[in-house]
C-alpha cells in the first residue's frame, strides 16, 4: 500500500496575506462589539488594513485580505451567508472595484485619505444597492442615505489619516539596528 501525501507549498506571500487577514478579522470582531447609534454605521477599521495592503503589496493581496476578512468575519460573528454577510460582501466588492481604478490616481496629489474616502463611499454604495435590490424598498432607504454617506465621509477620512500615519512610520521589517560605536 502506498501512502499518498498531499503537499501544499506555502509561500511567504501566503503567510503575509494570512497574517494581515487575521489582523483585519481581529479589527472586524473588535468593531462588532462597539455599540452603534444606527445599525450599519461602523468605523470600518478593517479597511485600514486593506488599504495598507493595497498600498504596500498591490491590489491582488488587498482583494485576498478583504475577501478572507469578510468570510472569516462572517464565520466568527455567526452570520455566514446571512443577510449581513452578503451586505458586507457587497460593500467589500464595490470598494475593491473602486480601489482598482482609484489607485491609479496621481500619487502626488491623491494620498491615502482620497483612497479611503472613495472606498468608504463605494462600500456604503454597494451595501445600499444590494439592500435596495433585495431587502428594503428604496423609498425607505432614501431617508437614511445622508446618514450613511456622512458616516462614510467621516470614517473614511479618519481611516485614511490613520493609514497615512502608519505609512509614514518607519517600517519595522526594514529597520536596522544602529551600529554601536565603541569609543
Amino acid at each position: 500500500m502506498t501512502r499518498s501525501r498531499i503537499e501544499l507549498p506555502v509561500t511567504a506571500d501566503d503567510r503575509r496575506i494570512a497574517r494581515l487577514a487575521a489582523l483585519a478579522v481581529g479589527l472586524t470582531l473588535a468593531e462588532a462589539a462597539l455599540p452603534s447609534p444606527v445599525p450599519g454605521v461602523k468605523p470600518g477599521l478593517a479597511n485600514i488594513v486593506v488599504l495598507l495592503v493595497l498600498l504596500q503589496y498591490g491590489w491582488r493581496a488587498a482583494a485576498w485580505v478583504s475577501g478572507l476578512r469578510v468570510l472569516a468575519g462572517g464565520l466568527l460573528l455567526g452570520m455566514l451567508f446571512a443577510p449581513g454577510f452578503w451586505l458586507s460582501a457587497a460593500g467589500a466588492t464595490a470598494s475593491l472595484a473602486l480601489l482598482a481604478v482609484a489607485r491609479h490616481l496621481p500619487e502626488r496629489h491623491f494620498g491615502p485619505v482620497s483612497l479611503s474616502v472613495l472606498a468608504a463611499f463605494a462600500h456604503v454604495g454597494g451595501q445600499l444597492a444590494l439592500a435596495a435590490a433585495w431587502l428594503l424598498p428604496f423609498a425607505a432607504l432614501i431617508k437614511l442615505l445622508p446618514v450613511f454617506a456622512a458616516a462614510a465621509l467621516v470614517f473614511g477620512t479618519v481611516n485614511g489619516l490613520v493609514v497615512s500615519r502608519l505609512l509614514a512610520a518607519p517600517n519595522p521589517d526594514k529597520r536596522q539596528s544602529a551600529p554601536c560605536l565603541i569609543p
Partner: peptide
C-alpha cells in the same frame, strides 16, 4: 499629510452628503 487632491475628494464627499 493631506494633499491637494485629498481636499478636493473631501469637498466632493461633503457635497454628496449635503446633496443627499
Amino acid at each position: 499629510m493631506l494633499r491637494a487632491g485629498d481636499w478636493s475628494v473631501l469637498a466632493g464627499g461633503a457635497a454628496v452628503v449635503a446633496g443627499l
